[in-house]
Simulated assay, not measured.
Amino acid sequence: MTRDLLGYGGQWPDVTWPNGTKLAVSIVINFEEGAEEQVGDGDPRSERLGEVLSVVEPGRRDFGQEQIFAYGMRAGVWRVAECLERAALLATIFFCGRAVERAPELARRLVDAGHEAACHGWRWRPHADYPSPEAERIDLDRATAAIEAATGVRPLGFFCRGSESPWTRQILAERGYVYTSNGLDDDLPYCDAHTALLVVPYAFDSNDMKFFHPNGFVRADEMVDYVVDALDVLEAEAQRGHARLLNIGFHLRIVGRPARFKAFQAIIRELKRRESRLWVARRIDIARAFQAATDRGDIP
């Protein structure tokens, strides 16, 4: 795959989102607890990244890390779901297949509330690790089936941890997926050069995972201020006629904790405050709106 460092080359597509605004905002909730590596689940090692780096030796069960992840399902999901419901805002849920298989009633509840079911792989792992297309197809099909069985909806969007493999996008296209979000390189969707897939870019900067990274967010206000700064910049560009997309990513075990939940609440309030000037939408709706603009000829 040849790297494209130019993209739109400063000639942005003239896209107006369905509500008449130029700035779209995607809220993403990662639903992956129970799909991470854990020795207790038969894996050779347990996930190291959590509230602290695991100090348990590989091959030994890390009960603490298991519990840190379990918090997202046992407590965090309820706070997040209730806040979105009160605000009447819809998100895209990045569902790991194995997490859905272990908590199908939670997955169904979120989708029944109107949120989008997207695929986050079978496990919380990089798809770049798959040794062959055949192995990747097996797990993608397994994840797709688990999500559809639990929610009644077949996912049309995809995002995996880390990186796709050289074959991921072709497999997704074969399976009828509409978009991938493993693109960290733009502020607008774009067409993949080798498949029929649309790339709806994602972002790691406006993402609560930075609470788990050194030199990232520590206090809730730090994430709120960061997202507000992003909204200010993109809204100013939108006022000059440039279509834009802002991604805000959350994890149930991270922002679901009480002190960090204040960041989620404040960001949701800020989106509601600006609601007339932007479009908060599910990623599948963003993809379809962008494709419709393409079909109309708005995008060369």
Rank of each mutant, 00 (worst) to 15 (best):
N247C: 10
E51S: 08
E275R: 15
R74V: 12
M223C: 09
D192G: 07
Q67K: 05
R98D: 12
A128W: 08
R273L: 08
R60I: 06
R161G: 07
D129T: 10
P258A: 11
R74Y: 09
P133G: 03
A135E: 09
D139T: 08
F159W: 13
A87K: 13
F250E: 00
H194S: 11
W78T: 15
G97Q: 00
R74C: 08
T21R: 14
E82K: 14
K210D: 07
T151R: 03
E270A: 15
V15L: 05
L246I: 08
A135N: 03
A24Q: 05
Y8W: 12
E37H: 14
T2L: 14
E270C: 11
R240Q: 11
L23T: 07
E235K: 05
I286R: 07
D43Y: 13
I27Y: 08
L198T: 12
N182H: 04
I254L: 11
L106T: 12
V227R: 01
A203K: 06
R260V: 10
V77S: 11
A118Q: 02
R108E: 15
E105C: 06
L278F: 09
V55M: 15
N247I: 08
L188I: 04
A220N: 05
R219I: 06
I254K: 05
A259Y: 14
R45N: 06
N207T: 08
G183W: 00
Q11W: 05
A128K: 09
V178N: 00
L278V: 06
A196V: 03
T195G: 02
R60Q: 14
E32R: 13
R142G: 03
V56K: 08
R274C: 02
L198E: 04
T16D: 01
Q65W: 05
H194A: 15
R125G: 01
